[in-house]
């Protein structure tokens, strides 16, 4: 990890820690954090795998997948009659982490300086964005 990556990770860790402290101390922060988590986080990694290029599109799919995950976890627990909020939270965290874990290995490309295999971080989806000329804002799909 380079310096920039370390800084980014550190910032995220500090932000999450602050939020956790705030959530424990302030009444209205915890519902906000819980809603943001359930509505956006579990699906984020999975949405990124779609390679939608546009951040808004990734956000949309993050929300859709996250809601699906929350519904799935809640439904399984309610139907299975083993309701446990913390188990549900753990399951959602697991889904979140799985979204960032590579699904398959591919051989490193010839230009790659590293030898052998590396984890393939990209979900093998065809880019849905058509290649448009810069400045062409019509781009109707026909």
């Amino acid at each position: 990890m380079n310096e920039r990556g370390i800084l980014k990770t550190g910032a995220v860790v500090v932000a999450v820690a602050l939020l956790l402290v705030l959530a424990a101390e302030t009444d209205w922060v915890r519902p906000l954090c819980a809603a943001a988590f359930c509505l956006l986080v579990p699906g984020y990694g999975w949405a990124r795998r779609m390679h939608l290029k546009d951040k808004g599109d990734t956000l949309a799919l993050s929300a859709v997948f996250s809601i699906c995950a929350t519904v799935a976890v809640g439904t399984v627990m309610a139907v299975g009659r083993w309701w446990s909020p913390w188990t549900g939270f753990a399951a959602l965290l697991l889904i979140t982490l799985c979204g960032f874990i590579p699904l398959r290995r591919t051989e490193a490309g010839s230009n790659d300086s590293e030898k052998g295999f590396r984890w393939h971080l990209e979900f093998p989806a065809q880019a849905p964005e058509p290649n448009l000329r810069p400045g062409d804002e019509t781009g109707e799909k026909r």
Binding site: R30, P31, C33, A34, A35, F37, C38, I67, T70, V71, V73, G74, T75, M77, A78, V79, W83, P85, G88, F89
Partner: peptide, 21 residues
């Protein structure tokens, strides 16, 4: 029940006694 189960999980995680807020 999907929505309600998801809503119950969210309410529990938010530490609220009910889903009113």
């Amino acid at each position: 029940l999907g929505f309600f189960a998801g809503g119950a999980l969210l309410t529990e995680l938010s530490g609220q006694p009910d889903a009113l807020s």
